[in-house]
Amino acid sequence: MNIFRLAGDVCHLVAIIILLLKIWRSRSCAGISGKSQVLFAIVFTTRYLDLFTVFISPYNTIMKVVFLALSYATVYLIYMRFRNTFNSENDSFRLEFLLVPVIGLSFLENYAFTPLEILWTFSIFLESVAIMPQLFMITKTGEAESITTHYLFFLGLYRALYIANWVWRYHTEGFFDQIAVVSGVVQTIFYIDFFYLYVTKVLRGRGKMTLP
């Protein structure tokens, strides 16, 4: 554990809580991609199956359970509790375009050809593209509420901090997880364009982010 890892996990948690609170307080999930949230729930479910096979630390176990619970709570709010506010016409990203290549790649490139390792690899690859339906939705509608942009900012910050964590671990422990690092870098690239818009539009302006 190092400061980058810890800060990254905290940002991840903050992002998820921001989204959950936004939906809960406004009683609305307008502007939120339910598909992205379902993908994140699948990511946590397939990655944290090792809760049943290995014990790493109390921190590790607690965080995994919290991430799982919060991601399912988010999906529940979007598709059940506040489904009448869910804008499904704009959440039209075709999931098969993500799932088919990700499933294929996780069978081709993994650390061991066992169900748990393939599912872990699948979750790593899927996480790297899971935000695409949300970014697609913002591009399609041309705007995002500022609270949604704060959510995306913390998610992107979490990814950037994980890269710092890997640089740190490589130099201090010689640790290098090529699957996590390559897909982590790819994932962070998706946020760079958004970061630029966030700084120039949301932080310097007020209210909604509108695309040029």
């Binding site: 890892r5 996990d9 991840h12 990655r47 090792d50 096979t53 290995v54 790493i56 630390s57 590790n60 965080m63 995994k64 991430f67 650390y111 061991a112 066992t114 748990l116 390792e117 872990w120 994980y162 964590n165 010689g174 640790f175 290098f176 997880d177 090529q178 996590a180």
Partner: peptide, 10 residues
Amino acid sequence: CHRVGVKDEL
């Protein structure tokens, strides 16, 4: 140095 089955990151 990757250990199969033990992933300490989240």
